[in-house]
Design a protein around this nucleic acid. Structure first.
Lengths: 108, 108
DNA sequence: CTATTTTTCCGAAATATCGTAAAAATACTC
DNA sequence: GAGTATTTTTACGATATTTCGGAAAAATAG
């Protein structure tokens, strides 16, 4: 099972959070707002590609009827596997982060 | 402000958790147990080096009086900056992960 | 045809990870 | 103290992976 990169994790969370509205631009904007860091499109789409290839997101073509023209959007949806990966990653971090958790060594 | 890699985050958490007992071998073992993944020493020490250079951990020479000989240990301690970095990273993740949190876009 | 929005492309540069043999430092034994 | 066993760290080239930039292309409405 491949791990999630930090940025992958970030973008995956964004996809998850944005639900029906997750496409390139909104994802980028969302991550930018939350992290204070703006990623170039190269990074964004490359990460989304990797997520798709790992089966953590799926892509669907958007309806071609926006407000003022412009290229068709591709929406991203988190998959079951994606949710699972996210949940596992978060679980691990929470476990480690939780101050009450004993370490294996501290029990000696 | 440099970000933490996923593995860096991992090792930093381990250092933090192991407190006075954090040196190469215990760190490696701890991470291995928690994640189910064993990192080679190259990866381990390279990550610790980077953490040290970023000021997130400090290194101190251990007392040379173990049980059965062997090279001197170098203990790692998390620094204030390290704690701050960890806290920030965790905070962000918790925020994003928390299902109740509204997205900027969902408020429209 | 023009304006607009979104995605793609792609090589270069930066980083991360691997593996493992070797070196260093120390205690123990006689 | 010399040799041996033990523990831990270091070194480092080779791979692999990520990230960057941003101009260009695609798709669409007016």
């Amino acid at each position: 099972m491949k791990d999630l990169t930090l940025t992958e994790e970030m973008f995956l969370l964004a996809v998850w959070k944005l639900k029906e509205e997750a496409y390139g631009v909104t994802i980028r904007q969302y991550v930018s707002e939350e992290t204070g860091r703006t990623y170039p499109y190269g990074t964004l789409y490359s990460a989304l590609d990797k997520l798709a290839r790992k089966g953590f997101v799926a892509r669907s073509t958007g309806d071609p009827s926006p407000e003022r023209g412009g290229r068709r959007k591709y929406y991203y949806h988190i998959t079951g596997q994606g949710i699972e990966a996210l949940r596992a990653a978060m679980e691990l971090k929470r476990l480690l982060w939780d101050p009450d958790t004993e370490t294996a060594l501290s029990k000696s």
